[in-house]
Design a protein around this nucleic acid. Structure first.
Lengths: 243, 243
DNA sequence: CGAGAAATTGAGCCAACTCAAAGTCAGTGG
DNA sequence: CCACTGACTTTGAGTTGGCTCAATTTCTCG
């Protein structure tokens, strides 16, 4: 974790991704500026580094500008469930500020750029600034809704259904932010991470992916995913698209 | 759905369960009184009746006084995932008010007593009353956290682990409200409902239950569940207890 | 070009599922 | 009081989806 290299680059980060973000959705120019000023400087973190280590009691609020990160639970025997995947523009860690609960660990899936508002500072802002609290309420409510869809995916869907619906979810979320070209996007998770998100083995996930490929539903080249038959994927991935 | 039979009974419902509820946690006497006055009269609904039917766009806020209810998603092919189970004192439906999103259906698992605040009224209150919004924030944050534990249960746990952890969860939540006697409680869900909550078949759930019984971890007589080896269940149900 | 990480493929197994039958229980009407 | 009905639970038998273990191939990057 280090500061972003040059002011100019930092400037780009600051201006571009943030207005598309979840936190800032529907805010006027003035408030966006305020929010940006509250966030600390843009930092950069390497792939696989922990943005939030173990179970911190005072984890900051993180806003991602570039790259993917994920929040996870580690069970005592080593199993890992990825709770949520944060894409550029997403905010991580509101829950632990609100509940005064130790946070879950957060890890960068690729090299990321992000900025933070400290734990205490976030609490102050929540207490003092009405519209910020309003935002927080909306974000947490949305996160809850997303968790419930994820939960449904795990509880009711077959492996292929899970994979189809999760890919559509990523596609939709990226597309809404202008980060998906046509029917394709860059999937910045390893198979193992994706497997831990959809509750499958890395091995089985792989078989399902190649099955989807051979059914002509998608193509994959490196991290690039191309959804060649979105309608077909929708039919498979029964989970309602949030879009 | 009809009004509770006599004023006295309604009075009992009003006074007793509500102070233990999630919404009202940590509020002073005055605010609890306010909240009670905002809620409409206590109503009663039969087992299996829909408290919130289909996908209402203006579902009310529901506070349960007696009985169990659950919120669920129905997939197009009929599969059902129970998203959350509400126990006496719990509140249902904040999410749909906050997000202005059609609600998921809610069904009474047994005969229940509850009261409501209308959709519009809730919105007003959220906009106007600061401490009410504060409460809402805390509740939604907690619901998100619970959804994430449920999600982990479904994604990572074996059938026995799921059952053990869900039973502990019910036990803890009931005990905290004084609704569990010793190590036992009344499980007001059918096997099928429980199965749809933990993502198993009703048949398989049953085998697991009898397995747990024969391992001496629990006993069941009708709806009564007795956890005869809580430590053992804890070891099995890896999910951290919220307690 | 070599080393380590990630992805893919193969073979065999078991947990959880399906289909189906039988048993239990509460409530209802004769 | 008892037979009848319908909902719920339990048990049986056979199948399969997803898992494990292990080997191999492909990428990435120094």
């Amino acid at each position: 974790m280090q500061e972003a290299p040059s002011p100019e680059r930092a400037g780009i980060y600051l201006l571009k991704p943030i207005p598309e973000s979840t936190v800032f959705r529907g805010l006027d120019r003035e408030r966006v500026a305020l929010l940006c000023s509250w966030h600390g400087p843009q930092r950069r973190a390497e792939r696989n580094s922990q943005l939030v280590s173990g179970y911190e009691t005072a984890a900051p609020l993180i806003t991602l500008s570039h790259g993917w990160a994920f929040r996870y639970i580690l069970l005592p025997d080593g199993r890992r469930q990825i709770l949520s995947v944060a894409l550029p523009g997403d905010t991580i860690g509101l829950g632990s500020v609100l509940l005064e609960t130790p946070s879950y660990p957060v890890q960068a899936a690729v090299e990321v750029v992000y900025s933070t508002i400290g734990h205490e500072r976030t609490k102050e802002l929540l207490a003092q600034t009405d519209w910020f609290r309003q935002c927080a309420l909306a974000i947490v409510a949305r996160e809850r809704a997303e968790a419930e869809l994820t939960l449904t995916r795990l509880g009711q869907c077959s492996a292929a259904e899970r994979v189809a619906s999760v890919l559509l979810e990523f596609y939709d979320r990226l597309a809404k932010r202008g980060l998906a070209a046509k029917e394709s996007f860059r999937l910045d998770l390893t198979r193992e991470q994706l497997a831990d998100f959809v509750g499958l083995t890395q091995v089985h996930l792989n078989r399902i992916l190649s099955q989807l490929r051979s059914r002509g539903l998608l193509m994959m080249v490196g991290p690039q995913v191309m959804l060649t038959d979105i309608a077909g994927l929708e039919r498979l991935g029964v989970i309602p698209r949030t879009a």
